[in-house]
Simulated assay, not measured.
Amino acid sequence: METVRQTSTMSRRTLLAGMGAFALSACGDSSSSTPANPAPEIPEIRLGVLKVTDTAPLFVAQREGIFAKYGLNPKFVTMELTGDQRPDLEVGGQADVAFDSWVTIFLNITDGADWVVLGEAYQAAPRCTGLVAGSKSRMRTISDLTSKPIGVNNLRGLGVLLTNSLLRTSGMKPTDVKYVEKPFDALADAVRNGEVAAAWMVEPYMTRSQLEAGCVLFADTAVGPTADFPQSGYACARSFARKNPNTVRAFQLALAEAQQRSLDRSLVENVLPEYISVSKNVAQLMNLGNYPSTTLAIRPQRVADLMLEQQFMAQKIEVNKRMASINPPS
């Protein structure tokens, strides 16, 4: 896979119906009659991915021939999993379609990126995202975090959003703690060395921190108001969707089928070691979230609304106006 650095259980009919009507809001008329599943304009679509569990269905699709079934031969472009992501998805940019957390996708949109949403990637489940602490930590309640440093991979990311919500359940404010930005790979050591009192992690980093650094799960950040929280998705530039509707359609169909196939945990476990650098032991032990096989605007809208509430952005994003969806052939 090419690496670049970023700057700043279902029938075919059910599968198609579940994805909704093919129409890009303000992206032109797509009502003309076309053959079922016309050939993609760009078979070798470039997919920007991060090495996290969320993207496992893409590699299931590659291994199981799902992309090929829809006429795609994707090229995976591995983005860096650190800091504030600002990928270029325009013509000649880093990728055609990008995966990322909804927080980062929506921040890009509020900063002027004219993107549309292609599909959902991952939803949090219990014990698959949370704050970890050292095994000898004396902290017992969330309020024990007051005035303490918390490690996160991105000061404007999903971890801060979820942790802020957790703090609120204990009557605390974001300013009651100090967020410290470090790459995911460095967070476990930061906990072990006492640089931070706790660190926010996702899988496989949580399980890896427990096995390699003796960390323990201190607080689950996918419970209460953030239970089943939508974590991530896929987006592309509106201009790309306008010019390549068949490619967008093919990707969405392949993604929906791959997400459904990924309900079989063994398929996910098989791709993690090869594509996402997760050991077989960690792949077997780690907790998994959910891979939605349909895309509903109401789910990522939860993220956008929470971002607005926490002042991650100044204006509300209407996710339904940013959806690119498909219409089953007659």
Score class of each variant (00 low, 15 high):
Q62H: 11
N73R: 15
E212K: 14
R5W: 05
P126H: 15
S279H: 12
N327V: 07
L162R: 03
T9H: 14
E120I: 02
D111K: 15
G20D: 10
S209P: 00
I150L: 06
S293Y: 13
T141F: 06
G83Y: 12
E90P: 02
V60Y: 03
N281M: 12
V282Q: 05
T3L: 14
A235G: 05
T169E: 11
L15D: 07
N270R: 15
V278C: 13
L211P: 00
A61R: 01
G151R: 00
S147T: 07
F22Y: 09
G214N: 13
E212Q: 14
R192C: 03
M10A: 10
K69G: 02
Y275F: 14
L267K: 11
D88V: 12
Q310V: 11
M286I: 10
T55G: 08
V49F: 09
N37K: 15
R63V: 05
A113T: 10
A235D: 00
F251N: 03
E269M: 15
L47C: 05
R302I: 07
L187Y: 03
V319K: 00
S147P: 00
R156C: 07
P225G: 09
A95N: 08
I45T: 06
G48H: 02
G71Y: 06
S8E: 11
V303H: 01
N287H: 14
A254E: 04
V132H: 01
A235E: 01
K148M: 02
I150G: 03
P43F: 11
G151T: 05
T294E: 13
M19N: 06
R127K: 15
P230A: 03
N37V: 07
F218K: 09
N287W: 08
V177F: 05
T207W: 02
K178N: 12
V116K: 02
S266V: 10
Y291M: 11
M313F: 04
K280Y: 08
V278M: 10
V49H: 05
Q85V: 10
I317Q: 00
G119I: 02
L267G: 07
N290L: 14
I66G: 01
S147L: 12
N73P: 00
L161G: 04
L253W: 09
T294D: 10
A199T: 10
K243A: 13
V97Q: 11
A213C: 10
N287K: 15
G48L: 02
D189T: 12
G92F: 14
Q62L: 12
L272R: 09
A113D: 01
A95E: 09
L285H: 10
G83P: 06
A250N: 09
D305H: 05
M10S: 08
D305F: 03
T221H: 13
F67K: 01
Q62E: 12
Q231L: 13
D88S: 13
K136T: 08
G28Y: 05
E64W: 02
A36I: 08
F59I: 01
Y122G: 04
D96R: 04
G159Q: 03
E64C: 07
Q315W: 09
M172S: 03
P74F: 03
P174Q: 08
K51F: 06
I66P: 00
A98W: 04
M1H: 11
I42M: 04
E274T: 15
L166W: 00
D100Q: 15
K182G: 00
V248E: 02
S293G: 07
A124K: 12
G289T: 04
A36N: 11
